[in-house]
Amino acid sequence: MAKIITKDLNLWYGGFHALKNISLSFESNRITAIIGPSGCGKSTLLRVFNRMNDFIEGLRQDGEVLIDGVNILNGKTDLVALRKRVGMVFQRPNPFPLSVYENIVFGERIHADSVNQDTLDEVVENSLKSVLLWDELKDKLNKSALMLSLEQKQRLCIARVIAVKPDVLLMDEPCSALDPQATMRIEELMRELKNNYTIIIVTHSMQQAARVSDDAGFMLLGELIEFGNTDQIFTAPHDKRTEDYITGRYG
């Protein structure tokens, strides 16, 4: 089932045409990778889905982006509700300078009308368990999140998003600050999480896209060149440009 559908999406930063007629759909409970060289618009596309581009001055977009059939690009969209449903993990782990515990319950505190200590404790335990950090951190919940290793920080950021109970996880190069082993473990985590979430990952690493994703899209200079099953994209691309990119002829 299609969770997110974009129809003729165009986006401009001032005079710069960053996304050109993007039409594609993202399936539920699958990992979709978006690949392409730097500056191709893949991060911009990702940030359309939770409207994080709104902070940029001179932004203009048209077309439609349907999430569960509702267009999120019109002015009436409730951004708080949207971002609750569409969580985002950033390129560099960005835990808040608060304790591990407070990082995870951040979402609960800002969204719930009243907070109950037992609920908070439960949220912390469940979220940390689902990112496999509970055993490591259960005795360090009051330590500052800034003391953690990079991998732990990134897992914590994922836990923080999961705690808000989104349906969609947007991941903007989530492993680019991590070493290969940590990357491998985060990828394992993604495979586990896809049972419950629709995951879209932007990555500059073709190997990562090949390892982790079910579907893949290749972008170049703001255009979606090709979209399909990951196996097909990597073994039998239809477009010459896709083939050139994945075989390393440029990028």
Partner: peptide
């Protein structure tokens, strides 16, 4: 960004 992305 992190806070806004969580819906704050």
């Amino acid at each position: 960004e992190g806070a806004f992305a969580l819906g704050a």
